[in-house]
Amino acid sequence: MIFITGDTHGEYNDTVSRFAENGVGKGDTVIVCGDFGFVGRIGGKHQYYLKQLAKEEFTILFVDGNHENFDVLETYPVVEYCGGRAHKVAENIYHLMRGQIFDIEGKRYFTFGGAYSIDKFMRKEGRSWWARELPSNEEYKEAGENLEKVGYKVDYVLTHTMPDSMIYRIGKNTDVHDAELTGYFEWLYRQLDFKKWFAGHWHINRNFDGKMYILYDEMIRMEK
C-alpha cells in the first residue's frame, strides 16, 4: 500500500505517530511531499532519528522541500530506483530527485521538489538555508526530456510547492523569488495529462476538485 503525506520536518515522534495512526506497516510505502527534514548535520539528532527510521519495515520516499540540508543530502549515492534517479539514504529511504519519473506499484509518478524560503533572511547559509532549494536549469531540462519520453502523461505528480493558480486559491500570492518554479508548475498543470497532484509546503490540508491535494499532517491512502 502507498501512503502520501506532507512535511515531517524531522519531527520524529510526530512522524512515527502519524505513520502508526494511519496503519502504515510492513511492506508499505510512504511518500513525503518535501521538508522531510531527517537528513541533517552529521552527528546531529536527525542522524539518530534517521537511523531509527531505517529500521522500519516499510519504505520511505521523499521529494525535497526548501528546508532540507542539501549539503548532506547530496553526499548520498545516486542510484536508479523504480526507473528514475534517487539518492539512496538507507536501504528503505530514498530521495526522489527532481525531474524524474518513477514506476511505483504500476503507477507513473513525476517528481519535482524544491521551493523558496520566505524566511531566508532569518536563516544562515550552509546551516539552516541552502541555495539548492530552488531548481537548476539542468533539472528543468531533464524534467522536460523525461516528460517528452512519456508523452507528458503520468498518473501522479509529487512536488513541494504548487502551481500559481492553486496558491491564489488558498488566499496566498506567489513570491517573486518563487515565480519561475510556481510558474513552471502552472504550465505543467495545464500541459500534463495526470490524475492527481500532491504537494506539501503550505502547512494545510486541502483538496481541490479531487485533483490537487495540499497535505500537511494528513495522509492519503492510494488506490491500487
Rank of each mutant, 00 (worst) to 15 (best):
I60F: 03
E148Q: 10
P77K: 13
C82R: 09
R221K: 15
D71N: 12
M222D: 06
G23M: 08
F62N: 01
G43S: 07
W197S: 02
Y109V: 12
E133T: 03
V24L: 04
K153E: 11
K141N: 13
N137Y: 04
Y109W: 06
A131R: 08
H95K: 09
V154W: 06
A90G: 04
H203E: 06
T5A: 00
E142F: 07
V176C: 15
W187P: 09
H201Y: 12
D28Y: 09
L61P: 00
K124Q: 12
D64P: 03
G106Y: 05
E133P: 11
S136G: 11
E180D: 08
L188Y: 03
V16S: 06
W129A: 05
V89E: 00
T29F: 02
K224P: 04
W197T: 03
L96H: 02
G27C: 05
H46P: 04
E11Q: 10
V89A: 01
L134Q: 02
G10M: 00
I101M: 14
T5C: 00
H87P: 15
I214V: 12
K153V: 07
V78C: 10
W202P: 00
Y116L: 07
I204V: 11
G10I: 00
Q100N: 14
D64H: 07
R18C: 13
I101F: 08
V78K: 15
K51V: 10
V16P: 12
P77S: 14
S117M: 07
D119Q: 13
M97D: 04
K124G: 04
L188N: 06
E138S: 14
Y76E: 05
V30C: 06
K88A: 10
